[in-house]
Amino acid sequence: MTTTDLVTVANRRSLDRSRLKRLFTRPEIGALVAAIAVLVFFSVYTGQFFSLPGAGVWLESASTFGIMAVAVALLMIGGEFDLSSGVMTGFTALIVGVLTTHYGLNIWVAVVIALIVALGVGALNGYLVMKTGLPSFIVTLGTFFVLAGIDLALTKVITGQVSIQGMTQVPLYDSIQPVFGSSVEIGGGNFYVSVLWWVAVTVVATWVLLRTRAGNWIFAVGGAQTAARQIGVPVLKTKIGLFMTTAGAGWLVGMISLFRTSTVQANTGVGQEFIYIICAVVGGCLLTGGFGSAIGAALGALIYGMTFQGITFAQWDTNWLRTFLGAMLLGAVFLNHWVRIRAGGGSR
C-alpha cells in the first residue's frame, strides 16, 4: 500500500496540469462563451438591454424555456427525446383551467391533479419507448399530436371556446398565484418568481447528474444502454424517471404561464419542444446521448431569452430570431461533434 501511496503523490502534479485542459472539454463551455458574447453585443448595441428593467424582461423570457431545457437535457443525456414536452405546458394549464372555471374544483386540488396526469403521461411515454423499443422521437411525436388534439377539441367541447377565461374569479386563486406567477420590483425592473424556479431546477438537476447514483445511471443508459444493463444499472427505472421528469417540468412551466397571465390558449406550447432541444444542444448535450450538462442547457435558454428580447430592443424584425437559433444549433452541433471525437466515444 505504501508504494501505491507514493505513486499517487507523484502523479498529483500531472493531475493538476490536466485540470485546465479538462475545463475546456466541459460540455457547457461553448454555451458560456456564446452567452457572454450575446450579452456584450446587445448591451453595446441597445441602451435598455444592460439595465435592471431590461434584465427583468430577458430573464423572465429565459426562465420558462430554461426549466424545460434543463429537463429535456437530462432526458437527452439519457439518450431519449420528448416531443410532447412543449404541448405538455399547455395541457396541464388547460386541465387546471377547465377543472376550476368549468367544474368549480378547488384550485389546489386541480393543480395537484394536473401534476399527477402529467407524470402519468410521462411514465406512459417512457414505458412505451422501453417496451416497444421504438425510437422515442416517434413515440413522443404520437403523444404530442394526441395531446395537441385533446387540448383543442376537448377544451372547445367543454367550454365552447379555445381559451380559458375568468381564472382570476376562481376562489383561492390569490392563495396559489404568488407561488408560480408573482414578481418583485427591483430598481424599476420586474423580476418574476419563475427565475427562482429556473435556478432551483438547474441546481437540483446538476447535483443529481454529477453527485448521485441516479446521475451516473442517466449518463450510462444514454451512453451505452446494453453495457449499462449488463453491469446492473436499472435501465427501465432510469428512463421512465427521465420521461416523468420532463413531464413534471412541463407541468411547472404550465402553472407558471397560467398564473402569470391568468389565461391559457388551447394551442399553448405547440412548437416549443424544438426550442427546448435547441437550448439543450447549444448547452452541450449530444443528440446521441451520454454527454451534456444541466448548467449548459440553462445557459442555452439564457442565450435564447437574451436574443429574443435583444432583437426586440434593437427593433429588428423578430423573425430573425429563428435564423439565429438555427445558426446557433448548427454551430453547437459541430462543436459537440468535435468534442465527442476527442473524447473517443465511438459507438453508442
Binding site: N216, F219, A224, A227, A228, Q230, L286, G290, G346
Partner: peptide
C-alpha cells in the same frame, strides 16, 4: 460493458 464517454472512475463503479 463500459460506457465510452464516461470517466474511468464512474465506469469502474457503475
Amino acid at each position: 460493458a463500459v460506457v465510452p464517454l464516461m470517466p474511468v472512475w464512474r465506469n469502474f463503479f457503475l
